[in-house]
Write a protein that binds this DNA or RNA. Structure first.
Lengths: 198, 198
DNA sequence: CGGCAGTTTGACCAACATCAAGTTGGGTGG
DNA sequence: CCACCCAACTTGATGTTGGTCAAACTGCCG
């Protein structure tokens, strides 16, 4: 679906993954969010799509016609509360990303993304998040750039630099190992200790 | 309030203005949002402040203890629906800003901000948004930079460039006139026509 | 063995940041 | 009333980062 399209339904992602993005008239593209199982597309009270939505894997959706769904939200408080909690979480993610896009260097952006994806994949597979963490990057260099506000060349160069610095190990172009998680986190620009004082 | 503080209440802004921001350990700061009258601070179901919140003018808040408020949200569906609509709007704003931070040039960032502030001030004063629009910048060059992910010097240089190009007229450092709104919009990088095809 | 998409690398360049002076204008104290 | 002070802003010189353009390289598939 593309920005401005009429949207006659809302939906919940059941399987697969999709992404939200927006494109400027001259073609510059920024990815705005990732839709994973349980995430919600569309919103009560708005009939146009606000951003481009594209599947990045085969996706199964659970769709509801918009009007009946809006009624259901009004009559079933619990649904509204759930939607509120989800949209507040998305807001946190979006703001975290604003910090990254506005102020972080290319190297910090890349390490943030690697840490994020590594942790999420490990958690998904019920693996501990420790040194030696190993995973497949689910997205291309191009998609990394679109996510981070960088060009593909800069992404590639930073990956090479991180490899040469021993922060990551790379096999092929997608297989990543993180020998020392603390080393990676130290490059993200964030608090390493979760923000605790002393 | 600062990131990580315990928050025993939620609040609605009645008068004045505040801003949301986050700071990296080394001091880099990114503004994440603006709180104006009717905006909401805090959230049901979360007891820590997620971002720094600072008043930028004298502010009056309407505060509610968090626990009773959470109960009220559960028992009064209409409140939850209103909060949902507000947080979805904030999400749109945040994502619009991600596009700006990730992909726009300094000149585009500045013109976007000027257009945004000009239009909001005009609307607030019930003035038509037309050529010759004139207003006072409510924020300093530094704050503009924090909002746009730029340094103060770059902000200043771009303002000078826009003045020399006749896109804006400047009196003192805060008073702005926009002789031709279309000229300004043409510099934002966005669709000038609101995205309509033909 | 091509052909091709995805990736890497190199050379060069533009945009923005950084560092360092100025400049302006409003407020204060002599 | 004037001199000076200070914060906010502007301007200049220079440095870095990341973008751009172009050319290889890789691995996979037909």
């Amino acid at each position: 679906m593309f920005e401005g399209d009429e949207m006659h339904f809302v939906a919940s992602v059941v399987t697969g993954a999709a992404r939200l993005s927006r494109t400027l008239p001259d073609g510059r593209l920024q990815m705005l969010g990732l839709l994973l199982p349980s995430d919600f597309i569309g919103r009560p009270g708005r009939d146009k799509v606000a951003y481009d939505v594209e599947a990045i894997q085969d996706v199964t959706l659970c769709c509801f016609r918009r009007k009946p769904f809006e009624q259901m939200v009004e009559t079933t408080p619990h649904i509204g509360q759930r939607l509120l909690a989800m949209s507040l979480d998305e807001l946190d993610v979006a703001r975290e990303w604003m910090m990254l896009l506005g102020r972080k260097t290319a190297r910090e952006k890349i390490t943030c993304l690697l840490a994020l994806i590594g942790q999420r994949i490990a958690t998904l597979h019920l693996q501990p998040v420790t040194d030696g963490l190993s995973f497949e990057m689910p997205i291309s260099r191009e998609a990394m750039g679109e996510y981070l506000g960088l060009t593909i060349e800069t992404v590639s160069r930073q990956m090479t630099a991180l490899r040469k610095d021993g922060i990551i190990e790379v096999k092929g172009s997608r297989s990543i190992t993180i020998p020392d998680l603390a080393d990676l986190m130290a490059e993200t620009g964030d608090d390493t200790d979760g923000g605790m004082l002393i």
